[in-house]
Computed example of a mutant assay.
Amino acid sequence: MSKVWFITGASKGFGREWAEAALERGDRVAGTARKLDDVAPLIERYGDAFLPIQLDVTDRAADIAAVQEAAETFGRLDVVVNNAGYGHFGMVEEITEDEARGQLETNLFGALWISQAALPIMREQGSGHIIQVSSIGGISAFPTVGIYHASKWALEGFSQSLAQEVAGFGISVTLVEPGGFSTDWSGPSASRSEEIEAYADVREAASKRPSAADPGDPTATRGAILKVVDADEPPLRIFFGKAPLEIATKDYESRLRTWNEWQPVSIEAHGN
């Protein structure tokens, strides 16, 4: 049976790739974009199978209305993809209040509002799948993108809770955690803080991260996302790309070593 998708940020990057993957196989897609001109090719190519919705995901009322419009147009919602987001580059000391709030409003609260809007519809259906586009930066952390990490770690936390809360309603939740890909995430789509010269060496070292040397091909994620949404038992978490597993393994092994090393102090802190 064909599926109905709701995808935020469908104008480019993963959102665009996944919208086309779904449409090409005969699914129907409601895709959001800040500017409808950016999704005009999808309208021209797929006609009524694609519902364009102009949306800024930081607007909670508009998020609710957009999800309702998609459900009313297509009769149901099978897959909701929270893809809209951007990266902010800046040392923690450099980040302004407006920059921090902007990052969280889009990457965290946008996904929260869309998820909340979709849940009553999916509960009534007794089925549904929420895809949260997280990042390797949702479970690990690197210099220069601290506030981006904050947004994705928070997304990971509420989504893991959500998965447990809604499993009994037939709703699945999957966190897709990509590594580096050839999108414009670190280019025109990104925002940047005013730099403090004292961090020049840290910034230079961060620019030479190995993952930047071998970015993944966004088009290759089309087949991968279809496998995830078609799975009888989809994963709570899945990496996209070659690099994330190695990064996560080193990170978690380091955490376990430290926790074990300091366990006597942890036990002391417990008291009786």
Rank of each mutant, 00 (worst) to 15 (best):
M91F: 13
A22H: 02
W259S: 07
L23K: 02
G102C: 11
I139N: 08
Q116T: 09
R237A: 00
H149P: 10
N82F: 00
T73K: 15
W113R: 10
W18Y: 06
A141G: 14
Q164W: 09
Q68E: 14
F181V: 03
A22V: 03
K152Y: 05
G216I: 07
K242R: 14
F6A: 07
K152H: 09
I196E: 11
R25V: 14
V67Q: 04
S172E: 05
A243I: 01
D37L: 05
G47D: 12
T106W: 07
P210D: 03
L55N: 01
V173N: 00
W18M: 03
E24R: 12
H88Y: 07
G87W: 00
R203D: 02
G15W: 02
T106S: 12
G241W: 03
A141W: 03
D214C: 04
S161G: 15
W113N: 08
F181Y: 14
L55V: 08
D78A: 07
Y46L: 00
G15C: 08
G85P: 06
A212L: 15
W18K: 02
V176H: 00
Q116A: 09
W262H: 11
M91Y: 05
D251L: 14
F74S: 03
D232T: 15
F142A: 11
D59Q: 13
T144G: 05
G85Q: 02
A66D: 06
G9M: 13
V229C: 09
L112Y: 15
A30L: 07
G13C: 13
A206G: 13
S172F: 07
E93H: 13
P235C: 01
L256R: 14
A70C: 13
V29S: 03
I130R: 01
K208Q: 15
V166H: 07
A243T: 02
L112R: 13
T258Q: 11
A33Y: 07
E72T: 15
I225A: 06
D59T: 13
V80M: 06
T183L: 11
A200L: 11
A70M: 11
V229K: 01
